[in-house]
Design a protein around this nucleic acid. Structure first.
Lengths: 343, 343
DNA sequence: TAAGGCTGTGCAATCGATTGCGCACATTTG
DNA sequence: CAAATGTGCGCAATCGATTGCACAGCCTTA
């Protein structure tokens, strides 16, 4: 071995530090740091030399040391509901992937944390720990404990979906606007008696969609009959009964709050041999591939869920970088008009 | 203000360091550290006093500082496939939640990283960074680049699902064993001509299930007819054609590699007005709620997917803690015998 | 040509924990 | 009672980056 100690032995298993790099290049560690960060004064030539070496040896500065020095972790947490309610997990997961995409593009990492919505402990640990720079809350309720806690400790965070506190950073689709537009469209297509099938008004999204439905009617200076409106459907039996009652009442169209309810409604109609759209028109305020199962294509609102995660991270990063993002970010939607509402 | 400077001002927004705690208690930082970690020599009384203070003030040691000192991050990464193939994302997500559950229980955090399966860059960053102590690979292929890379750099990792390299830590359900048992059960129930509908033999799980099917036949010293066997079904059309052909061949039973294929098969049979189990028996080597949509209940294998994530983290933690876990961990399954295979 | 400004770089402190070592005191032992 | 052993705790170095400050060398400018 004629070479010096710093010989790389075949494959470079040893992970370099900034000092190794400095020594190798005959400069000081500060210089290397400045070359990487681009902050501080440094000669252009030196800078290139360092950068080149770093790329060639795929050096990455130790995350812990950097965090400690900068008080910044380059980590974000996304708080997910527990898996129990599997039905709408795809929403959260898709959202998560959107978040991860943007995080990764900005050299941030995303920690997943699931909670039951009441136990603050995991959050407290992360906050005390200083393990993340900010958080994304994927599901919040009225007077949410997490929201209140995070406001209190002053950690940057964003809610996915509208938050009861307008001062909190939040990203959402325009659920109300979308449902209003859809309702108006249905009315304009000649539907006179539109039933609304919803449930779970403890969640903002459901509140907004229902409000949108009402606004759609109001825009035409009309009123839906109270008997056409359900806002407490949470299981199959209730939906089944609602469908029965609405068929008796002779409504034109069943506007479903979401894909699950819509899926049930379509099946109930199938079971009763009611054809769509011949015997009944159906629309959904949210699309998912659940609605792909049927021979008839379903009119629905389409929200790009990944976008919500992407935007949430963007907003959070803006906040962390001192740009002041708008408090409420509204995302676009699309109305997909299909056979199920042909008149 | 008669009190000293360290007065807590209403709510304690300031995050404490170990030194603050030490000063407050009139001990040294080392003592606090030892009280928390339980390592080193420390008097029991002091220990309790520190612990009590820490709990009362919800102190958590700074993660970055701890990482730096210990060269341990208490982070794990889970590498997820890209969202493109949404169909089997639920598997990965469920797995992720299992992993997160055990991680959280052990005061570890879980980073989600999605990759396209070829781009090493995100992994290289995490390794160079030292941002995680170990990784979980949720999907691996023959001679997987990630597996080879991680073996090379010597970071602890576990694969979800069987790995081509038997020396790698891996956690899986006993797919082969389960399919063998299911096949035998079907044969024992009088099915003579069992068709196998599968596809995607580039993935271990599919290879294993198919192998299990063959073993089930072999255990009875029988052979399935070649024409009953499909191992290349990847889209609806192919499945539709396969169902046609198999109906012509007059098979007894259609054993489907997974829930998606099974779902298609059931629909195709419905479309052709073939009743189940009257006209054809159907079984699936994997259950999901996709199979809940039908009036007839479907015989299937049930694997607890969260378990696979849980176990993956357990194995990884064992590895990190110096216990030598077994290389291959096999998980239990359940055979759910339902109407669809009544003879 | 001396004074002042600018540039590139290194020194050394710092972030907040962990941990080997040594000291003081208490307890046991011959 | 002196020596040996054990216990509890503090000192200070360490992990690997970042960053304010000082200094050397060069370029302006009067």
């Amino acid at each position: 071995m004629g070479m010096n100690e710093s010989t790389e032995n075949g494959d470079s298993k040893e992970i370099l530090t900034i000092h190794d790099v400095a020594r190798e290049l005959g400069v000081s560690a500060s210089t290397v740091s400045r070359a990487i960060s681009g902050k501080g004064r440094i000669g252009e030539e030196t800078r290139q030399r360092v950068l080149q070496f770093i790329n060639a040896n795929s050096f990455h500065p130790n995350a812990a040391a950097r965090s400690l020095a900068q008080s910044r972790t380059y980590n974000l947490a996304i708080i997910m509901p527990e898996v129990r309610d599997l039905v709408d997990m795809p929403f959260f997961h898709t959202c998560m992937h959107g978040a991860e995409e943007v995080a990764q593009a900005n050299d941030y990492d995303l920690l997943v944390v699931t909670t039951d919505g009441t136990n603050l402990h995991p959050l407290e640990r992360m906050v005390g720990n200083r393990k993340v720079d900010g958080m994304i809350l994927t599901r919040t309720y009225e007077n949410d404990v997490f929201v209140e806690y995070l406001k209190n400790v002053g950690i940057p965070f964003v809610t996915v979906g509208r938050c009861y506190d307008p001062k909190v950073l939040q990203v959402d689709h325009d659920n109300a606007g979308a449902c209003k537009e859809l309702t108006m469209l249905l009315i304009s297509r000649g539907m006179e008696k539109i039933a609304y099938l919803g449930g779970g008004l403890d969640q903002m999204v459901n509140i907004d969609r229902y409000a949108g439905f009402r606004q759609g009617y109001e825009a035409y200076r009309k009123q839906p009959d109270k008997r056409w409106i359900y806002t407490d459907l949470v299981n199959k039996n209730q939906i089944s009964r609602a469908v029965d009652e609405l068929l008796h009442l002779g409504v034109d169209c069943m506007l479903c709050q979401d894909d699950f309810i819509c899926n049930e409604v379509v099946q109930e109609l199938n079971n009763r041999k009611v054809s769509i759209p011949g015997g009944m028109r159906v629309a959904s305020c949210h699309y998912s591939r659940l609605l792909d199962n049927y021979p008839v294509t379903i009119t629905s609102l389409k929200f790009d869920i990944m976008d919500i995660g992407r935007k949430a991270v963007q907003v959070l990063l803006d906040q962390l970088n001192g740009k002041n993002p708008r408090t409420l970010t509204m995302l676009d939607y699309e109305i997909s008009l299909k056979e199920s509402t042909k008149n």
